[in-house]
């Protein structure tokens, strides 16, 4: 019974989040476009499936994954406090970095918006970019990013230096990257941090910042999402560089792009 209530609540809140989108779509359709959309029935039923699917997904996450993930983040970050009362040594938290990388990778693979963008990229590129390759590249980026973000919280170093260095690396990579991959790479930064990743990663940051002496959860708890948004850009650009190297080796005479 409780489950049905949860599901109804989740459906209600999903509907509320989506209401502005539906409103904008309907207003423009009725007032501006005034054309019959093709396959309207299929679109509406698809939209309903999206809503039901998202609600089920959220209820399930709340039931199954988030409680364990959040307790684990708290336990892992707390377990070292007793041994390091006086000073924080970054290497005391190796398990935390490993957990951060593993959970960052795993949650990104399951991230629905990333699946959407990857499917679209595969079809728009005519199969030149594989949906799986893209998702793996993004997930590796998030894994490295979240892990480094935890290192930053432990050491208490300023966030902006890391992010600005990342920006510089992205700029350098941009010089060498093919123009076709750039928009997708820049997009991939925003799609990774969503429904699945944010709650678990936020719990991790909050746990670390509140358990390490001298860190404030209010200030140092932030920043992990920023890492998780900028690293995928680098990893996707790297992935495309490696990919084009392989392509060039496979296709001789050298393949000329458009």
């Amino acid at each position: 019974m409780q489950f049905v209530v949860d599901l109804a609540t989740a459906f209600g809140s999903t509907l509320r989040d989506v209401a502005p989108i539906i409103l904008v779509l309907v207003v423009f359709q009725v007032l501006v476009l005034r054309q019959k959309l093709p396959r309207l029935k299929q679109i509406v039923s698809g939209f309903v499936l999206v809503l039901i699917g998202l609600s089920l997904f959220l209820v399930g996450l709340n039931e199954a994954l988030f409680p364990i993930g959040e307790t684990m983040a708290a336990q892992l970050t707390a377990s070292n406090v007793a041994t390091t009362v006086h000073e924080v040594v970054w290497s005391d938290y190796l398990v935390v970095y490993a957990f951060a990388a593993a959970i960052g990778f795993a949650t990104t693979i399951a991230e629905p918006p990333l699946i959407a963008v990857a499917l679209k990229a595969e079809s728009a590129s005519g199969g030149a970019i594989s949906a799986w390759g893209l998702r793996l590249a993004v997930a590796v980026g998030v894994a490295i990013g979240v892990s480094l973000g935890c290192f930053r919280i432990v050491t208490g170093t300023p966030l902006q230096w890391y992010i600005i260095v990342c920006y510089v690396i992205v700029m350098i990579q941009t010089i060498f990257a093919s123009r076709a991959i750039m928009p997708l790479a820049y997009d991939s930064g925003g799609v990774t941090t969503s429904t699945v990743t944010v709650p678990v990663v936020a719990a991790l940051g909050l746990g670390l910042a509140s358990n390490i002496p001298g860190r404030s959860p209010l200030i140092d708890g932030f920043g992990l999402i920023a890492f998780a948004s900028v690293f995928p850009i680098m990893s996707v650009l790297t992935y495309s560089l490696i990919n084009s190297k392989f392509e060039r080796r496979k296709n001789s005479p050298p393949h000329v792009g458009h």
């Binding site: 093709p38 396959r39 299929q42 679109i43 509406v44 039923s45 698809g46 939209f47 309903v48 499936l49 999206v50 809503l51 039901i52 699917g53 998202l54 609600s55 089920l56 997904f57 959220l58 209820v59 399930g60 996450l61 039931e63 199954a64 994954l65 399951a110 629905p112 699946i115 959407a116 499917l119 679209k120």
Partner: peptide, 19 residues
Amino acid sequence: CVLLGLALFIHGLESGLFP
């Protein structure tokens, strides 16, 4: 629930949201 939800979401995405 997560499994079923993700499956429905992706199916709805391709038949509704993308078109």
